[in-house]
Structures are given as structure tokens and as C-alpha cells.
């Protein structure tokens, strides 16, 4: 009975953040199925350590911390993430609204190359780029998630970006410039119709 009350209390506390955790897992793992598995594993781990959770800490940061570790563990087991097939959903095609057919092809190709380059990075560098540049989390929250000082996070992120840039320099023609506006690039993938 006591454990059942504890479970309900945990569900009530974690439910508002389930979407963010799910999207965090999705951005790491690149597929819905993997993201669902990672979400479930994250919540189970969080529940098991719920009694030791210091309530004064932010719940979302705590859950994200667990989610990042779950995703890193799963990434080590599965290599392929953020493939082009994930960008093209089942039965859906990318419909671009950018001017000209060549621009959408160029963008698709850039995303594919970017995903592959990100996949080849070391887990630590990849984590920093996903948390900051993909999800847009503040430096302080990233530092809390990774249990590192903010300065270490910033310097690590700079090195990760440089490493990614170096990989992408092989395709300088695609990444040196862009004909797509910033507004277009800020649109989420699901809105690319």
C-alpha cells in the first residue's frame, strides 16, 4: 500500500515533464521506438531512486540527468541514430517550402551528412552538442546534468563544435553557405511539408 502511494506520488510529480524527457531521448536516439524505451527506462530508474531524491533539486533537471545517462547507455549499444529514414516518416514525404527544388535536396543532404557526422562523434562531445545546440538547454542546466563546472561545459562544447566542423569541411560546398533563411531552419522537422 505504501509503495503504491509512493508510485502515485512519483507519477504525479513526473507527468508534467514526460514530453520534454521524451523529446530529449528522441534527439539522442533518433527513433520513436527507442525514445519510448528510453523514456520508460528513465522513469523506472527515477522511481527506484525516488526515496533518495533531494526534493529541493529541480525535478526536470534530475529526470533529464537520468535520461541522458540512459540514452548514452543505449547509444553505446546501438550505433545508428538520426538517420535519413527518421527524417522521412512512415508514409510521409518531406515537403519543403523553401524556394526551388534544389534547395530542399540540398537541405536534405545536409541533414543526412550532419546526422552521420554527429553519430561518429565521441559520446561526450555528442551529448554536449545535443543538449546545447539541438535542445537549447542553458549552460547551467547542462553543467548540472553532467555534474561538471560551467567552464568545463563551455570549453568542451567549443571543442565538440570544432571537431564537428572539421568533419563537415569535407562538404564545404554544402555547409559554407545556405540559401535557406534562418526562419526556415528554425522550423521543426515535423513541419517541413
Amino acid at each position: 500500500m505504501q509503495k503504491g502511494n509512493e508510485a502515485n506520488e512519483f507519477i504525479e510529480m513526473a507527468a508534467p515533464f514526460e514530453k520534454n524527457i521524451y523529446l530529449t531521448c528522441y534527439s539522442f536516439l533518433g527513433s520513436r521506438q527507442d525514445a519510448e524505451d528510453a523514456l520508460q527506462e528513465t522513469m523506472l530508474r527515477a522511481f527506484r531512486s525516488f526515496s533518495r531524491f533531494r526534493r529541493e533539486a529541480q525535478i526536470q533537471t534530475w529526470l533529464r540527468k537520468i535520461a541522458v545517462h540512459v540514452c548514452i547507455d543505449m547509444t553505446r549499444k546501438r550505433k545508428n541514430i538520426l538517420s535519413i529514414e527518421d527524417i522521412q516518416e512512415d508514409g510521409e514525404e518531406l515537403k519543403d517550402s523553401s524556394p526551388g527544388p534544389y534547395d530542399s535536396l540540398e537541405r536534405t543532404e545536409r541533414m543526412r551528412i550532419l546526422s552521420e557526422a554527429l553519430d561518429e562523434m565521441r559520446p561526450e562531445a555528442r551529448t554536449l552538442i545535443i543538449l546545447r545546440d539541438v535542445q537549447g538547454l542553458p549552460y547551467e542546466e547542462i553543467a548540472d546534468i553532467l555534474s561538471q563546472p560551467v567552464g568545463t561545459v563551455k570549453s568542451g562544447l567549443n571543442r565538440a563544435r570544432s571537431a564537428l566542423q572539421k568533419r563537415l569541411n569535407q562538404h564545404a560546398d554544402l555547409f559554407a553557405r545556405s540559401t535557406v533563411s534562418t526562419e526556415e531552419r528554425r522550423k521543426p522537422r515535423s513541419e517541413l511539408r
Partner: peptide, 11 residues
Amino acid sequence: LKSDLKSLMPH
């Protein structure tokens, strides 16, 4: 590059 990475975020 940062803006390209931003577009990888699912919504």
C-alpha cells in the same frame, strides 16, 4: 551549423 543543429530538435 548551430542553426542546422537546432533544426534537428523534434517537436
